[in-house]
């Protein structure tokens, strides 16, 4: 079952059912148009009390990553963060001489992705957050039937003490990053021209019929040059294009975590000891302001990094 909260959300319930929900519970409230951690925590906890689910899953977004632990503390159940795998299994407790089954096995990478840990929760609901980009959206079955249930929570005025003064959103979700065959990604070293050359290279590739996109590493977002949605890395998106071109990216372990599954990694950096070079297949030591214009010219005259152009 799925819980959806907000303003005018009832119309979305059918979409959720068509994507696989058997029941969609919705909370319709004008004051909840914008996500707020306190009332959302309260609503979720009230629903959990009423329905007693074994498992509660959230997306590991900036809201899910704060909402889940706040709920987990209120329900005394703890949370597993940023999972890349979720399975139902069992746990053999030698101490208690029992087998916990079924139990949620939450898998998450740790130590800069060098290890994969399986984490189990023993208090219901077992709460986990799922990392963006690692789970496929279930296929939509148009006309699928399910239950739609309105839910009227008790809302406490005290939960509205925090005021959202304003919300600024840029280009939004950027699903493209997950689908692109080639990603040109700019790091701190490419901020001098505000990623101008990065974008130009991606555009040039697009004009050649390549499914290319541009992205960035964390410092670029830090400097306010582009929005969080473009950020690749452990706290941003995990991408796996056929070709990943890292330009001016030093290669912090958190960034590597977000791109290391890419097919071929090309690194361009003027700092020869940048650790990105330890995580790339091919590289150029040089200034991006010299190299990229040259690369863009090559692309304009037909070079596509060996990728087939879409007709």
């Amino acid at each position: 079952m799925t819980l959806i909260i907000g303003k005018k959300v009832e119309s979305l319930t059918q979409t959720l059912i068509e994507h696989g929900s058997d029941e969609v519970i919705f909370v319709e409230n004008d004051r909840l148009e914008e996500y707020l951690v306190l009332p959302f925590t309260s609503i979720f906890t009230q629903l959990i009390k009423e329905r007693n689910p074994e498992i509660a899953l959230f997306a590991a977004t900036t809201s899910g990553r704060e909402l889940a632990p706040r709920i987990g503390m209120r329900t005394s159940s703890g949370v597993t963060a940023d999972c890349t795998g979720l399975e139902i299994g069992e746990y053999i407790s030698k101490k208690e001489q029992v087998i916990y089954t079924p139990i949620l096995e939450s898998r998450r990478p740790t130590y800069g992705e060098s290890k994969l840990a399986t984490i189990l929760g023993f208090v219901c609901p077992q709460v986990s957050t799922a990392r963006a980009g690692t789970f496929e959206v279930p296929e939509r079955v148009v006309g699928r039937k399910g239950i739609t249930t309105p839910f009227k929570p008790n809302l406490d005025e005290k939960d509205f003490v925090v005021e959202v003064i304003k919300t600024v959103r840029g280009e939004g979700g950027l699903q493209n990053l997950f689908d692109a065959d080639l990603i040109v990604s700019g790091g701190r070293g490419t901020t001098t021209d505000s990623l101008g050359l990065i974008k130009q290279l991606a555009e040039a590739l697009k004009s050649q019929g390549i499914n290319a996109e541009w992205a960035c590493s964390r410092p670029v977002v830090d400097e306010g040059i582009t929005e969080y949605a473009r950020q690749v890395g452990q706290t941003g998106k995990t991408v796996r294009p056929k070709i990943y071109i890292a330009v001016g990216i030093s290669g912090a372990i958190q960034h590597i975590a977000g791109m290391k599954e890419s097919g071929t990694v090309i690194a361009i950096n003027q700092n020869p000891k940048a650790s990105i070079f330890n995580n790339a297949d091919f590289g150029i030591i040089g200034n991006y302001q010299d190299i990229l214009p040259e690369l863009i010219e090559r692309v304009k005259s037909g070079y596509t990094f060996g990728l087939e152009a879409k007709k």
Binding site: S114, K115, L116, A117, T118, I119, L120, G121, F122, N279
Partner: peptide
């Protein structure tokens, strides 16, 4: 309430 039940090393070799 939660435990780490198992840790597996991942090796990605480039």
């Amino acid at each position: 309430p939660t435990i780490v039940a198992k840790v597996v090393n991942m090796v990605s070799e480039r």
